[in-house]
């Protein structure tokens, strides 16, 4: 069964037909060519696929394309407006918070949700929040640093 969905994708209205069993991540990657959203596991644990649906971070590998009819979906590709990097992207770059880059889009999208809810997180709060985002390269040290730098709380005692 095909399902027709219309939704806002990175600020633009789009529509598409998708098989009922199509996952959001596959719709984004295969139908819209947005390959910045990755798949790192098949058990909903790694967070490589995190995007925002109606402003909240979700695992796009654990949502059906059919479920996003009428929603707003934002992906890593839409995060930097007019070529200007989002503060998190800038901080990830400056603090070497990525190595192979595979976890990075999900990591940044997840962190962006955190900073919306908690603009000045402590180190512990950042680490707790990132529970659903695995990185095998960085040991998280610089990721935590970058998220806090983006929040403007670097150097403050927070933990």
């Amino acid at each position: 069964m095909d399902v027709q969905v219309s939704f806002t994708l990175n600020g633009k209205m789009v529509s598409a037909a998708a098989g009922s069993a199509t996952l959001l991540v596959d719709l984004l990657r295969n139908r819209f060519g947005l390959t910045g959203t990755h798949v790192g596991c098949d058990t909903s644990q790694c967070g490589a696929c995190v995007v925002h649906v109606d402003g909240a971070s979700v695992k796009s590998c654990t949502m059906l394309a059919a479920q996003i009819d009428g929603c707003a979906v934002d992906t890593i590709e839409g995060l930097s407006g007019n070529g200007e990097l989002h503060p998190l992207q800038q901080a990830f770059h400056e603090h070497h918070a990525l190595q192979c880059g595979f976890c990075t889009p999900g990591m940044i999208m997840s962190a962006a949700d955190l900073l919306k809810r908690n603009p000045r997180p402590s180190e512990l709060e950042v680490r707790d929040w990132l529970e659903g985002n695995m990185c095998r390269c960085t040991g998280y040290h610089n990721i935590v640093k970058a998220v806090r730098a983006a929040a403007g709380v670097m150097g403050e005692e927070g933990s």
Binding site: A56, S57, V58, K59, T62, S110, D113, E131, G132
Partner: peptide, 9 residues
């Protein structure tokens, strides 16, 4: 429960 993305859904 779980992680933030799981809790969001």
């Amino acid at each position: 429960i779980g992680d933030p993305q799981v809790r969001n859904r």
